[in-house]
Design a protein around this nucleic acid. Structure first.
Lengths: 146, 146, 146, 146
DNA sequence: TTTT
DNA sequence: TTTT
């Protein structure tokens, strides 16, 4: 039976999206997203920031690379995926990413003046499971995509 | 400004919850949760399973250890948290976990015969950010909690 | 700027889906869904059930009518939509519905023996806003679809 | 068995929160929230706005009345509840509301300068089901709270 | 009108 | 390591 694997984030991009074109012409974009939480500790206001690795595929990657930039506030919906790779020293490592399924730009209108205002969805024909595509450090130079 | 960091999962426990009592009497429970996705690839039905590291604190940990077992179907709501630790060889590693905020047991009644049927929430006074508590491999014996 | 309008439900169908074919060949299905919450009141276990009006369009309606029946446990994701209509006495009324965007069958396998096990999504080309289609009492016979 | 009844909204307040104090000193706040969706229809950009009736109880109502105003952008999490009431003519009517469980203010920092930046949760002891409290038109003057 |  |  099927399960549910859903992530909902609202946060700011830590960097501009990094776009890559895989063999076969598939586009992948990725960027770090920060979600901050503020709480009181001994009467003081403390902020804790969590960083998330966001990955977008194909059309969604192209829209993201066009409209999202470092610092923008964005709503992202996607699913968790943990994948393994070998680093430069051939050590097996794991990274957990959020594979985006759709996103919506939030924040001041001026931030997105030439941009679409709708929620951007993963295009339909593109909704396959992406695991055949091995992106990441092991393919290229051992650096994390984030 | 605050962000949103929310995870929603429906899946089966891969193992019984593992319960630990930290110094100071704080209870932590953890277990792996599988969410399966089925899709068609070249006309064949393929199943892909994603494994998630679930962590529960205090009262929620105690309820989980009492009512959840390997194989059970459960709805879990929580937030993502990536933490670092050093493995036995002093190599810095990262693990992404879902810190549960509430859960609901799903599935056949017989699966939960002596159990409560309500959604179990993290008790209020317990809703602090848990980062002061360094659980995990480096503290104790080098094993991942998962 | 765009907003977010998302509903996540896990519950049981109160009736079999009711299927209608609109002019133009568009299929619409609808059914009531019950979500139950259990809580303690003065030491007694009390159950409170909320009923939701679920609406599905086109391909999603067809899949639902094929695989969902009264009593089944289902995960539904969709959006809220409130629409007005006139009842038999020409009184303007409002009804709030959940327009489903995808669903996943949960529960025992035997419940879904000949059914697909994947999450069912609204097909892509079908992802338009449905407000041109005025279904409901005023069109036909004054009965609520629920 | 318990179900799930969850709503996630990001939108703008249509009015300032309206605060009421029930007998017994319980505070209730309510306001309309707009979520907009933009889509293409025959090559033209069309915006469709959905209005939601938000209700907040006790401490959450008090925080909302203090920090939220007409026009602000807010993330709201809650559950659906449909209740009936009699209007001035003693006609039974239904209204579906979102009972907020927590909210987070989004948007420009200047919008919330003297405000907390954390997600505001329904305080724990307050997490009861609210159906003993009959708020709404029938109690007072026949007007919808929205 | 569901389910436990 | 789950489940169907």
């Amino acid at each position: 039976m099927s399960g549910i694997n859903k992530v909902i984030l609202v946060g700011h991009l830590g960097k501009d999206p990094e776009v890559r074109h895989l063999d076969g012409g598939v586009t992948v974009a990725s960027f770090p997203l920060a979600t901050s939480e503020t709480y009181n500790k001994d009467g003081k206001r403390v902020e804790q920031t969590e960083w998330h690795n966001i990955v977008l595929w194909r059309g969604l990657a192209e829209v993201a690379s066009k409209y999202l930039q470092k610092g923008k506030l964005v709503y992202i919906e996607g699913k968790l995926r943990t994948r393994s790779f070998e680093d430069k020293e051939k050590v097996k490592k794991y990274v957990t990413e959020i594979v985006a399924e759709n996103f919506t730009m939030l924040g001041r209108k001026s931030d997105f003046e030439q941009s679409p205002t709708a929620t951007i969805h993963q295009a339909p024909a593109e909704r396959k499971i992406e695991d055949e595509f091995t992106i990441g450090p092991s393919d290229e130079n051992g650096d994390l995509p984030f």
